[in-house]
Simulated scan of single mutants.
Amino acid sequence: MGRHKPKKKRRGLKIFLVVLLVLVAGIGAYGYSIYHNLSKAANAVHSPVDRTPEVKRSSDLELSKREPFSVLMLGVDERAGDKGRSDTMIVITVNPKLKSMEMLSIPRDTYVEIVGRGTQDKINHAYAFGGVEMSMNTVEKYLDIPIDYYVKMNMEGFQDIVDAVGGVTVNNDLDFTQGGHHFAVGELNLNGKEALNYARMRKNDARGDFGRQMRQRQVIQGVMNKGANISALWKYDDVLKALSKNVETNISFDEMKSIQKNYADARHNIEQIQVEGSGGFIGKVWYYFVSDEERAKIQDKLKEHLELK
């Protein structure tokens, strides 16, 4: 694997939340009031995207029939006058029959075709060029699978969500210090600020961006586990407020209810997938290159999980 060229790091956290499971966890358990507030929050974050898919299904996805589906997670640092880049891109496939999820982190510097631009560039530039639509189309063509849904999070507000669910628990395999916080090896309970620093560290890890991606996925799983725990509903109002301010998705409230009903068990068995490649320069710009063989291997794995083969 090539060595990443050092670069100035954005200050936003480079991870985000699997919001669909958190929003609908325990629906109906506390009666109409919570149901009403969940509906209101779901409508607030709902933002449909109008696009022509690069990879089409043979028939429309039916969640009521427990068909496997995919989600593109985008972690974006947005500032005034700057649309931002999706420095975190995670594709999740969910198969309820296997009761499993596959979680693929796509390195932000991966050299790909940017669909709609007719150029080759870093995959995270797709968001800067064309927002959610171009990101979905680019990832869809690169992986050769349908991307059914997206969840976009403004990472500046992520620590509020971690705090709202009562923090997260992770298993750390590397002793390091980041942002004034020391992270020892072993099981750690992290609040929002600690989770932000834990997941953003890259320079002191010999694995570079891959180590950071692993920590990102750990925090995502931690939020999922806390958000889907019935005890988190005691603070549901804080959770919903944090989500409403920082999340957008094309998943409707009815679809969220169907996912909660038919797919919730899948979160207990998550396989993390790493993209193998090498780094190098084109001119003075550093990219991450993935071979055709590696790309085909990942495509086949995701297609099998989505029951498309």
Rank of each mutant, 00 (worst) to 15 (best):
H182S: 12
H182W: 07
I161L: 13
E54L: 07
I270F: 03
M155F: 13
Q274G: 08
V55P: 00
E271W: 08
D300A: 15
G277P: 00
L306M: 11
H181K: 11
I34C: 05
A184F: 14
N124C: 08
V45R: 02
R207N: 02
K297L: 10
Q213K: 04
P68Y: 01
G280T: 07
V285A: 13
M73E: 04
N172P: 11
Y288N: 09
K14E: 14
G157L: 09
I92E: 13
T249Y: 00
K241R: 15
R10S: 14
Q178T: 03
N262I: 03
A206K: 14
L302G: 01
I90N: 02
M73V: 07
Y287W: 07
T119K: 07
I92R: 11
D292W: 08
I34W: 09
T88M: 14
A44W: 01
E140Y: 03
K261H: 10
A228M: 12
N137H: 01
K40W: 08
R215Q: 04
K56V: 07
E294D: 13
K83Q: 06
D238S: 13
A199E: 05
K99I: 10
L21E: 10
R3F: 04
S231M: 13
R202P: 11
R66C: 08
D60I: 09
M136C: 02
G116R: 05
A44I: 03
M224T: 12
N154E: 15
E293L: 08
V18S: 14
Q213L: 08
G116T: 05
Q299G: 05
E140R: 00
V94W: 00
L13A: 14
N191Y: 04
G31R: 02
F289L: 10
A29Q: 15
V115S: 02
V132W: 08
K14H: 12
T138W: 00
E78T: 15
Q213Y: 05
Y111E: 09
K65D: 09
F210G: 00
D87C: 08
A80R: 12
Y142K: 09
E78R: 15
H268C: 03
N250G: 02
G84K: 14
I106A: 01
R295Y: 05
T93K: 05
Q260M: 08
K14A: 14
E113T: 13
N124Y: 01
V115I: 13
I92W: 10
K245D: 11
